[in-house]
Nucleic acid binder design. Structure first.
Lengths: 269, 269
DNA sequence: TATAAAGGTGAATCCGCAC
DNA sequence: AGTGCGGATTCACCTTTAT
């Protein structure tokens, strides 16, 4: 264990602390099952140093609404696409607000997404008072080709980095990033091949991020011992990278199968 | 003159047609002075094939509001940043809606911007019913370095490409793009050096785009004779590229000095 | 080598309101 | 009136890279 004290519940809310899905022996790797919106206020206080979030896209279903921060699919009758756009935005605002409350004043958040969600996310961040620090382009050298031949080949994901507020003194390990880039300032375009095969051996997740990408994010904006949180665990890459880099980790997901996948990967470390 | 008829005012609104700042002899290059929001409904009907827009950022002033689609700086008393975020979004929605009305059903629009505005723009597009086709990353190999050493070097601008609506059959000159990319599908990351020196000989504009960038955009998504519109003319690069590629052009700007700069560049062709 | 980059930071200062 | 504090503004200086 490095640096700080173990993760512990907030004094004033210990009574309603939800049962963890998993806690490691050293207490530095914890998984919660549930909605980030519900779980976050009970566990994290304003103590989180770094958040990485890869929110769901809700691509498959046009008929979607947002009820108290949760996405619900609805009967298509009388529904339309624009209402789904509004629902997506309401959802993004809700979980982002919960994340903002969990961040410490100098904490930062990273959010990845494609064009379907990232504009709602970025604008919601501005609406909520986050300060956008960088918009990183994750460029995939080997993107799937565009079969329809009606678009430029979609070869990027956007990753937004933001501080809790304008006044935040955000953490940025400039020298490390510079050293990792041949003693030149690291730019906002990052090339990483999408994970395949070996990295996905424990199970599949549609938007799994390469560990090298998560490692860069965590190293750039946190120190050993810091608390890292992922409100949409998915395949669990954030927790793996955080653990390897000696950060403490809390993961949240609504789906038990993803938590189990993340746990399996953690235990294989 | 190529292909179609000359640009002419809409039959039903000719009476209120504003006086053009400039019309070329062949009628294929027209500049209007004024607010895009006011000028667009009077001139274009639903006849525009392609729009390129580089909207203002309103960076310099925190105290900014939006009155009937126009940005107005306000006394800072009682003002706050979040209201400026809302005002920026209102402004973007207003001019984007006017652009959407001017587009023909299969027309497309390109909008460039940095993180300060592009999330509001992209989300407004979704709200208005545009269909996001591509999010292009314009990567600058020669970005200004980050002096504060607290960020990754901002080295991109985002350029959104969208169709008027989901049902649009948008134009994409796939084969030409493929041929221009060594017979490989062209991807959504484009490298162009930012214009400097020679290209800026006729005057300065803070966000001048390289002609090669505008040329790619116009060639990708329009044909000779098509009508191209730029609601924020700035240094006028869109009109130059459009003219060289035999497209018709309408430019709008509130600032006479930018229109004159664009005109000087046009006449130097 | 000098310059420019829709810069960024933080200390010093100034101003206005509260006590 | 004088003092104190917080917020807002000003200003000097830091720093890097490509041309």
């Amino acid at each position: 264990m490095v640096g700080k004290a173990k993760i512990s519940p907030r004094e004033d809310s210990a009574a309603e602390l939800p049962a963890a899905h998993f806690i490691s022996d050293d207490g530095n790797f914890i998984l919660y099952k549930g909605d980030a919106l519900e779980v976050l206020p009970k566990i994290a206080g304003a103590s989180v140093d770094l958040i990485f979030a890869d929110p769901p896209y809700f691509l498959s279903n046009d008929g979607v609404t947002c009820q108290s921060g949760r996405m619900v699919s609805v009967n298509k009758g009388g529904w339309d696409r624009l209402k789904s756009v509004a629902a997506m935005h309401e959802f993004n605002r809700a979980w982002l607000a919960a994340c903002r409350a969990a961040l410490n004043p100098n904490g930062t958040i990273w959010v990845s997404g494609t064009r379907h969600v990232i504009y709602s996310v970025g604008f919601a961040m501005q609406e909520l008072g986050f300060k956008l620090l960088n918009d990183i382009t994750w460029e995939k050298p080997n993107p799937p080709p565009n079969l329809s031949c009606r678009y430029f080949t979609h070869s990027t994901e956007t990753i937004l980095w933001a501080a809790r507020e304008t006044k935040s003194k955000h953490k940025f390990n400039y020298k490390l990033m510079r050293a990792n880039n041949g003693d030149r300032q690291m730019k906002s375009v990052w090339q990483f091949t999408a994970p395949s095969g070996v990295e996905k051996q424990h199970g599949a997740h549609p938007t799994q991020k390469p560990l090298a990408l998560l490692s860069r994010i965590i190293e750039a904006s946190s120190d050993a011992g810091d608390l890292v949180l992922d409100p949409f665990v998915g395949s669990g890459s954030t927790g793996i990278a955080a653990t390897r880099l000696k950060r403490r980790f809390i993961g949240i997901d609504t789906a038990a199968e993803f938590l189990d996948l993340a746990l399996t990967r953690y235990q294989a470390e």
